[in-house]
Nucleic acid binder design. Structure first.
Lengths: 331, 331
DNA sequence: CCTAGATGGTTAATCGATTAATTTACGATT
DNA sequence: AATCGTAAATTAATCGATTAACCATCTAGG
């Protein structure tokens, strides 16, 4: 490893001068400065981040605590955070909290111990971590008071609900994966708002909820709205097993616009989050907090985008009626 | 932040003694040592990783270069590496190379600049990164000479091929996502080996390949083997659109055992990799290389595990014949 | 009574970069 | 000629932990 000292010795100046020349801070003659810069790049000099961190007290590294990297959405967040961090000259140290809250705290202190400057937390469903003496931002959902940035899960659900209600559905099944997830609760609350007061809805959770779907359809429901694309896929499989077609007999919606949404047949109407904006905003706020500003930023809910595909349609009863209407009009 | 100096001043000893007491290295009386340890934990002392890294030349941090965190398998690798690293007292700094090879090199130098002790690379399909002067391990596939550890993609394909051939299929479609991926090529080569010389096969790639599936089935093929579960889902959608049922008309297999494999209907016969073993072995080798051992480890291919579900069956023609046979035998 | 050998600590140097304070040198000003 | 200003560079301290080298006691053996 080449150090400042080596360059200094080679050129015959003090390390301070080399440091100044490279950082452009102190007073160094232009001629000497270029000489130093040239040699530095020839030698492939890279400043020791450890030394710099020790002296400045800033490591340039952020910690990222994720509940479970297996969840298909989190990698996208991680990826976008990583890209956003890179463009700011920061690195990202990951810590997987593997589902339980205890490990989340552990991960947190571990990251702090490694000297990260700040932390991004995507919290455990339902648990309250303690973002202690270190700058931190939380990405969860608007109804979580700790949240700094999030997708507008509520608004997303509302868009989907409005879409479904607009097609004419009046009895709808809302399907969640895990009732303790605040994100999923917000999504469902949004769906209910979007459906409006005229539509009836049944909320069902988890595996048992999935199994109940065909039953509820026989009971008169004409649409199924899931809180994730994966759950929608599960619902679709239950439906086709019961001989029900999508969107012919039942309309189906997902959430998150995962790759599988376009691999399914029919392709899934769903809603996408703007992960990039979320990541950038999170880092902006975090950077400000690290710089010492009071955490007075209002929490931001980034709008979601409705992706219309072919899994939703006018309910069969209504479409027959429309045909009749049209025939009446034509004759 | 509490430092060694503070503890030393509070107790009235030198920093060296405190350091020794906490690390258990030098000679410190048991009584004093416990007194120091107690105070340290009371004060919540955390050694500065920057200082330690500067002095020892080891940061305790590994870099992880991933082609694309969006690919559903990589997060699982990342998660397992992260867990394996944690248990060894190491941290993991991620760098996303976003698909292109140039950025991969960039990511590499960036990680080195941050002072990582070693690097884990999951390489770009088809590209050759330069694992330069720093200890590194590569997770790819056995046919890549740089590979240190990998799942036995070839053997996995072979298992699936044997399974399909064993069921009696004699004409099979092999479906890949991207022809430049060495992993996918190995998977397909394995499938071909497993099918044996008696079976005919058609290899098709990408979106065009997916679209050609119904055609090939009409041409006489009775099974579709995909190089990933997601592709299998896409094939399934093409098949049902063409009025073909799985596994009635066509048997279907995937690869990787993603969550969607059990959400589909029928549930997908696929093959799972032992990501945990791969991660642990990768870190073991990397640790050894960091410790200065020559990189003479033979590359290891971790066996894959066949997961039999309901998407594969005896081909219709054969099953009818078997029924006839049985009736003949019974009468 | 003197000394070899433990035992329990301390000193001080070091890792590499940063930066405030200081020194040197030189041209310009009065 | 004496003085001031300023550009250009050096000194030296510092961040916090580690560790080799050294020093001071005390005990036990001859």
């Amino acid at each position: 490893m080449t150090s400042l000292k080596q360059i200094a010795r080679d050129i015959g100046v003090s390390t301070a001068t080399v440091s100044n020349a490279l950082s452009g801070k102190g007073r160094v003659s232009e001629e000497l400065a270029t000489r130093i810069r040239t040699l530095a790049s020839e030698l492939g000099y890279r400043p020791s981040s450890a030394a710099r961190a020790l002296k400045t007290g800033q490591s340039g590294i952020l910690g990222l605590v994720m509940p479970d990297l297996t969840n298909p959405l989190f990698p996208r967040i991680a990826q976008n955070l990583s890209i956003a961090a890179e463009s700011r000259g920061l690195g990202i140290l990951i810590a997987d909290s593997r589902g339980d809250a205890a490990r989340q705290d552990e991960a947190l202190t571990q990251l702090v111990g490694r000297g990260v400057d700040g932390i991004v937390i995507v919290p455990q469903k339902g648990t309250s971590p303690v973002p202690d003496g270190i700058p931190a931002v939380v990405i969860n959902t608007a109804s979580d008071p700790r949240t700094t940035v999030s997708a507008d899960h509520l608004g997303g659900g509302r868009q989907l609900g409005t879409h479904i209600a607009g097609l004419g559905h009046r009895e709808v099944v809302l399907l969640g994966g895990d009732a303790v997830s605040e994100v999923q609760q917000d999504r469902i609350r949004g769906m209910i708002e979007g459906l409006g007061p005229d539509a009836r809805h049944h909320v069902a959770w988890g595996e048992a909820g999935l199994d109940a779907v065909p039953h509820l359809i026989e009971g008169g429901a004409t649409a199924v709205m899931a809180t994730s694309d994966l759950i929608a896929l599960g619902a679709h499989s239950r439906l086709s097993r019961a001989g029900l077609s999508v969107p012919g007999d039942v309309s189906l919606t997902g959430f998150d616009d995962l790759p599988l949404a376009t691999a399914m047949h029919p392709e899934l109407t769903t809603i996408a989050q703007d992960v990039q904006t979320i990541a950038e905003h999170a880092l902006d706020v975090l950077a400000r907090r690290i710089a010492g500003h009071a955490p007075d930023d209002p929490s931001l809910a980034v709008p979601m985008r409705l992706v219309l595909r072919t899994s939703t349609a006018v309910p069969r009863a209504l479409s027959r009626q429309q045909e009749t209407d049209q025939q009446g009009a034509n004759s």
